[in-house]
Design a protein around this nucleic acid. Structure first.
Lengths: 249, 249
DNA sequence: CCTGGCTCTCTTGCATACAAGACAGGAAGC
DNA sequence: GCTTCCTGTCTTGTATGCAAGAGAGCCAGG
């Protein structure tokens, strides 16, 4: 999103920038988020960067390795399973609790599915990743319950990190079809069916993961040697290359 | 729970102390949480207190009024409705996703219900409040999914704050019966029924609230005059009176 | 060539200092 | 008496400084 100079509203912009970056698959799991780097990027002191990191940590988006740095989480296979389970629970519970789909909501979802189709046609993979996750958030928004929206946003962010680690190929068409089916069920007012389809859809995506493929083939070894998690900063390509070879200080 | 001197593990003890205090109804909504007070209590600097506050803010437990202080949230009527809806979604979704009740789990819930009975017999209202909320957290723990446990813990904390604001009388027996019914359904393996009962139970509790009774009859006026939210510190009675009239510095 | 240890640098952890806003209380003017 | 303004105090907001830990790299010894 916006860059530095975002002073004044920098309050939470660090947080949203990073989450947005993850939701659109621009930031990879394991990316190192140096306090000094971010402080320079946003033109603030480390204090505020740390605040943002703490918030993101409680949201399960980043974690800190003492005296070594902040890193975007690299969910383990167990984490991945837990995240998908949590999503099934929340999303199915949400759909079952719905009573009707307003015309407004119908339009919003319809427009979203069109966006998915456009992105597929254009082959815009990053945008596609974002849209595939966003669909579920949009459904939550229909409920008007910001608590659930926030929960699902964070879970979706983790889902995307998981897919970057364990998903070899991206079955966009399959996901899109799943979304369409859910939408159809919702349109007919059959929310129980929509919930079931949602669970199936999430199962499908989860099954498409190769959870045996460890994110880093050497992670076992690294851990036993207490070496740093793969920084992956070399593969971090922000759309706006604001992080040059900033040899900080 | 433990007090100052908790150095070393002070890492997150501020957070858990406050959340525990809320879960056991020892800290009222609107309680002012001064950075200096907490810093003195825990024997750390404001920095770490602020970190804890930020985390709690992310979790929806406290909020900050700029340059005026941190306060335990006072959920509005709308917030209350949203919290109960979120709980219904998550808890019903969770129960529906369960396949079996292990013997271990059965014992845990059974023991818990006994504790409820004991607290009712003893008339220990604080403990009862804690147990009534904890029952739902225990169910989440059965799933072994820490994500869901954390979500429900925070929602339960907010629920207790809501009950302190809007619940005139405490229908402990009614809640206990609701829990027993849910447990019975789970024992028979009928998790769909358990989910339905759970929704009914939450509806019952929600209906027992008087959401027309504003937490502070003058809150509208206060807001328009941008006066401080009611501190309620005068009604704050920690079981361990560690916060005397600490005229900080 | 390999191994062990040393140092040097870079990172976060934490405390502190100072800035700035929000009230409270009192004094001055009407 | 009432209102208005002003000043003092207390709060959080933010930056900065210093300490301590973790590695990376180098050098010596085998």
């Amino acid at each position: 999103m916006q860059e530095s100079q975002a002073s004044e509203t920098t309050q939470k912009s660090i947080e949203v920038t990073i989450v947005s970056g993850i939701l659109s698959a621009k930031i990879r799991p394991g990316t190192r988020l140096g306090e000094n780097q971010l402080a320079a990027l946003f033109g603030v002191s480390r204090t505020r960067v740390r605040e943002a990191m703490m918030r993101l940590e409680t949201r399960g988006i980043v974690h800190v390795s003492p005296r070594r740095g902040w890193f975007v989480v690299e969910p383990s296979a167990e984490d991945a399973i837990a995240v998908y389970e949590a999503r099934r629970v929340v999303e199915a519970g949400l759909l079952r609790s719905m009573a009707l789909l307003t015309e407004e909501g119908r339009k919003a979802l319809d427009a979203h599915l069109n966006e998915e189709r456009n992105a597929m046609a254009a082959g815009d993979r990053q945008r596609l990743t974002y849209l595939m996750g966003d669909f579920h958030i949009r459904i939550a928004e229909l409920s008007g319950n910001t608590i659930i929206v926030d929960i699902l946003r964070d879970l979706t962010a983790r889902t995307i990190l998981i897919s970057m680690l364990y998903q070899s190929e991206f079955h966009a068409a399959q996901s899109h079809e799943g979304h369409c089916r859910i939408f159809e069920a919702m349109q007919t007012g059959d929310f129980v069916r929509a919930a079931e389809l949602s669970v199936e859809h999430l199962d499908e995506v989860e099954m498409g993961l190769d959870l045996t493929a460890r994110p880093d083939p050497l992670s076992d070894l690294r851990k036993s040697l207490s070496l740093p998690p793969r920084t992956a900063s070399s593969t971090f390509q922000p759309s706006d290359p604001k992080i040059p070879t900033t040899k900080e200080q």
